[in-house]
């Protein structure tokens, strides 16, 4: 029955066109881009390729970093001291991105937000999810983090401190979640598959399969 209703909803209408008037900054972007292309600073294909590269980023590198931290205590210590340097030491160059890694423990649960805009370690985690950029998440997770976490299915006991990190300036953040029980001795590649994007933002925790 449910699938019948679902099928009926597929009426093959195209999505609505976003053909409203351009905003100030949309007009500005088009103008600047066209001038730069006209002056030969770069070509239209360079713009397309840059967008393709941005869209292709995924949370895989972040998961690799977390799995390494779980299996290599010296790496984890280095990661918590200087996230960018530790990533560089395993061949993950973050460029100018200044990374702070925060560790979940038996007594602390960390969660990341950028209340002012949507700062996010894209080199490690790919593009941020839409909810991360939404006003609802940005305004509420600093004000009532436990209620927001509950909506993500994450119940943090009262004897565990919730530590919100507001990424307001030049640093970017990754949460190192706790390694799920029963995964001791796993290979890093297998562990990395448990580490999702949301675990590294801190709205959930890795689940044992």
């Amino acid at each position: 029955m449910a699938s019948h209703v679902h099928d009926q909803a597929h009426d093959h209408r195209p999505p609505p066109d976003e053909d409203g008037p351009l905003s100030y900054y949309e007009t500005m972007e088009i103008a600047v881009r066209e001038i730069l292309i006209e002056k030969g600073v770069f070509g239209a294909d360079d713009v397309r390729a840059a967008i393709e590269a941005m869209d292709a980023r995924s949370p895989a590198k972040g998961a690799e970093v977390v799995a390494r931290a779980w299996t290599d205590p010296a790496f984890k210590d280095a990661l918590l001291v200087d996230g960018s340097a530790a990533c560089a030491s395993i061949g993950i160059e973050l460029g100018p991105l200044r990374l702070i890694a925060v560790e979940n423990t038996a007594t602390v649960h960390n969660v990341i937000v950028c209340t002012l805009c949507s700062c996010y370690p894209r080199n490690l985690l790919g593009l941020p999810p839409d909810w991360y950029k939404a006003k609802a998440y940005r305004s509420r997770v600093v004000r009532e983090p436990r209620a927001v976490l509950r909506e993500f299915g994450t119940e943090v006991p009262d004897d565990v401190t919730v530590r919100v990190h507001d990424s307001t300036a030049d640093m970017r953040y990754i949460v190192v979640p706790r390694q799920p029980a029963g995964t001791e001795g796993w290979e890093p590649e297998r562990l990395a598959a448990l580490v999702t994007r949301d675990c590294m933002i801190g709205v959930t925790v890795p689940k044992t399969p």
Binding site: V142, R143, E144, P145, R146, A147, D158, D159, T161, V162, R163, V164, H165, D166, S167, T168, A169, D170, M171
Partner: peptide, 17 residues
């Protein structure tokens, strides 16, 4: 930050300033 904060007293926010 929030006088009526509905959570344990130990909860914190770190902000870059």
């Amino acid at each position: 930050l929030w006088p009526d904060y509905a959570g344990p007293a130990g909860d914190t926010i770190d902000i870059e300033l």
